[in-house]
Amino acid sequence: MNWNQIEGNWKQFKGSAKAQWGDLTDNELTEAEGNRDKLVGKIQERYGIAQEEAERQVDSFAAGLKH
């Protein structure tokens, strides 16, 4: 699924993101607003991982989403 679709339907996908990254707070997910870069940054910050790893996780998450 592409990020335009995810961003446009973020409220629907927020629960899936919470399941994927359980350490992210609801506020952090709300602040991300489905924006890929914001989500990557929040994952980096919360999990203490490199940007490349956070981007890989986010891309994998997006690939696994169904309409």
Rank of each mutant, 00 (worst) to 15 (best):
residue 9 N to R: 06
residue 51 Q to D: 09
residue 64 G to V: 01
residue 11 K to N: 08
residue 61 F to C: 03
residue 61 F to Q: 01
residue 29 L to A: 01
residue 6 I to H: 11
residue 29 L to K: 00
residue 66 K to E: 13
residue 62 A to L: 00
residue 39 L to E: 02
residue 60 S to V: 12
residue 26 D to T: 02
residue 27 N to L: 10
residue 35 N to F: 06
residue 35 N to S: 14
residue 22 G to R: 12
residue 27 N to H: 11
residue 28 E to F: 10
residue 6 I to K: 04
residue 24 L to E: 02
residue 20 Q to K: 15
residue 61 F to Y: 03
residue 31 E to Q: 09
residue 59 D to C: 14
residue 38 K to R: 14
residue 14 K to L: 00
residue 43 I to A: 11
residue 62 A to S: 03
residue 47 Y to I: 02
residue 27 N to A: 15
residue 52 E to R: 08
residue 61 F to T: 00
residue 36 R to A: 01
residue 11 K to T: 09
residue 17 A to F: 01
residue 54 A to R: 00
residue 5 Q to G: 07
residue 9 N to G: 06
residue 66 K to T: 13
residue 26 D to S: 05
residue 63 A to E: 04
residue 62 A to C: 01
residue 40 V to A: 01
residue 24 L to N: 02
residue 33 E to W: 15
residue 44 Q to I: 03
residue 21 W to Q: 04
residue 9 N to P: 08
residue 26 D to C: 05
residue 39 L to T: 10
residue 28 E to Y: 06
residue 53 E to T: 15
residue 64 G to F: 03
residue 4 N to K: 05
residue 31 E to S: 08
residue 65 L to R: 00
residue 39 L to Q: 15
residue 66 K to L: 05
residue 29 L to V: 04
residue 28 E to V: 03
residue 47 Y to D: 07
residue 15 G to T: 06
residue 31 E to P: 11
residue 6 I to F: 14
residue 39 L to A: 01
residue 1 M to Y: 13
residue 57 Q to M: 06
residue 29 L to C: 11
residue 37 D to A: 14
residue 5 Q to D: 12
residue 29 L to G: 04
residue 19 A to Y: 15
residue 65 L to Y: 03
residue 59 D to P: 05
residue 12 Q to S: 14
residue 8 G to P: 08
residue 22 G to C: 04
residue 4 N to M: 13
residue 61 F to G: 01
residue 51 Q to G: 09
residue 59 D to M: 14
residue 57 Q to N: 08
residue 44 Q to E: 12
residue 51 Q to P: 13
residue 56 R to E: 09
residue 13 F to A: 13
residue 60 S to I: 03
residue 14 K to W: 00
residue 6 I to Q: 03
residue 52 E to C: 13
residue 25 T to F: 10
residue 23 D to K: 12
residue 40 V to Q: 01
residue 13 F to G: 02
residue 49 I to R: 09
residue 24 L to T: 02
residue 14 K to P: 01
residue 1 M to V: 08
residue 25 T to P: 09
residue 52 E to V: 10
residue 63 A to M: 10
residue 31 E to K: 14
residue 32 A to M: 09
residue 45 E to G: 15
residue 30 T to A: 13
residue 37 D to H: 04
residue 47 Y to A: 15
residue 58 V to C: 12
residue 26 D to V: 14
residue 26 D to Q: 14
residue 50 A to P: 10
residue 62 A to T: 12
residue 53 E to C: 11
residue 14 K to I: 00
residue 46 R to S: 12
residue 49 I to W: 14
residue 28 E to L: 13
residue 51 Q to C: 08
residue 13 F to P: 02
residue 35 N to C: 07
residue 21 W to C: 07
residue 22 G to F: 10
residue 34 G to S: 11
residue 22 G to P: 11
residue 18 K to G: 00
residue 45 E to V: 10
residue 55 E to A: 07
residue 27 N to K: 07
residue 3 W to Y: 06
residue 8 G to C: 09
residue 65 L to P: 09
residue 22 G to A: 09
residue 1 M to W: 05
residue 60 S to P: 12
residue 58 V to L: 07
residue 67 H to R: 15
residue 50 A to D: 13
residue 20 Q to E: 06
residue 58 V to Q: 10
residue 19 A to H: 06
residue 39 L to H: 08
